[in-house]
Design a protein around this nucleic acid. Sequence first.
DNA 1: AACGATAGACAAGTGGCTTGACTAAATGGT
DNA 2: ACCATTTAGTCAAGCCACTTGTCTATCGTT
Lengths: 170, 170
Amino acid sequence: MRDGEMQRAAERRPRAAAANQAAQADNLALATLLLSAATTLVDGIHGAVMAAGFDDLRPTHGFAFVRISRGDATVGDVAEHLGVTKQAASQLVDELDRKGYVTRRPHPTDARARLLALTPRGWACTRAADRAMADLMEGWAAVLGGKRVAALRADLARVVPVGPLRPAAW
Amino acid sequence: MRDGEMQRAAERRPRAAAANQAAQADNLALATLLLSAATTLVDGIHGAVMAAGFDDLRPTHGFAFVRISRGDATVGDVAEHLGVTKQAASQLVDELDRKGYVTRRPHPTDARARLLALTPRGWACTRAADRAMADLMEGWAAVLGGKRVAALRADLARVVPVGPLRPAAW
DNA sequence: AACGATAGACAAGTGGCTTGACTAAATGGT
DNA sequence: ACCATTTAGTCAAGCCACTTGTCTATCGTT
């Protein structure tokens, strides 16, 4: 069906057209809410982390921490986790090293690779981020109740493809 | 409480510590899901729009379309909507003009300003995006049911601050 | 009429990413 | 055991969307 036909058909079916418009508005609302939720989370956590004194980091660094804190991480692993090139990850890790958040020790079984680990400062930063995240979720639970927050999580888990926690590329 | 004390306290309360860890994991899971949901939406819509032949646009352009399609938009309005400088918005709009998606006509009451409007091609692109969004949401509804999707929207609306639909800045 | 404020565009600079090129070490086939 | 290929990581240069800085034309106010 071409656009002209669609428009004329809509004119002939005003009720259906109105319903479609309402559905479209609902879709846009949900999409907007999801994007806002994501930015609210990232901004909130990042703001709290900065306020806690770790003000030389960007959100992307936090995403790298998620992988590094899990242990057994190399630069390549971080690159894959973040969805960037190895070069970008290498720069990022180098920066984190210079700023005292991670260490690069020789890999036990591969002399080419380096095993990454968080320093005490890196762990402190991670704890600050976790705390901020918990605070935010506590706020949500205070409004919705723990049950609906859990339902939110469960529902999203059913429709959102699982993947690594990577920064937005838009 | 210093970190050392906290750690020792956690060792003394293994049950509480385990519960906290579980809660922390849940928080991270929900945060991950929300970010994934946002990227899934953006990538999905952008992919569909590109596949529909509008392959010279980035997601940011789509966010601009949202404001411009609402009508009565100037470059300044778009800048505020996107959360970028007027210069950046100016470049963006110029590009959209060159590519045939928007027109810049003289503003009826302010000779400094220019009134933005979508061209037929701009509208076609917007419709393609709306269709992609509807398809995605239909997929969600097929899994969760319309009721739970509506609940998702309602719950998020209660905890997420309302704001313009702007691209992620991380 | 004259003033500061505003809309928009031109120009140059910036920063985080990319592609390209390279070294050193691991892997695999013969 | 050897050599070719692959892989981990880094150095270097380029790219591009954004920024800050500057300017003109026009608006609103007094």
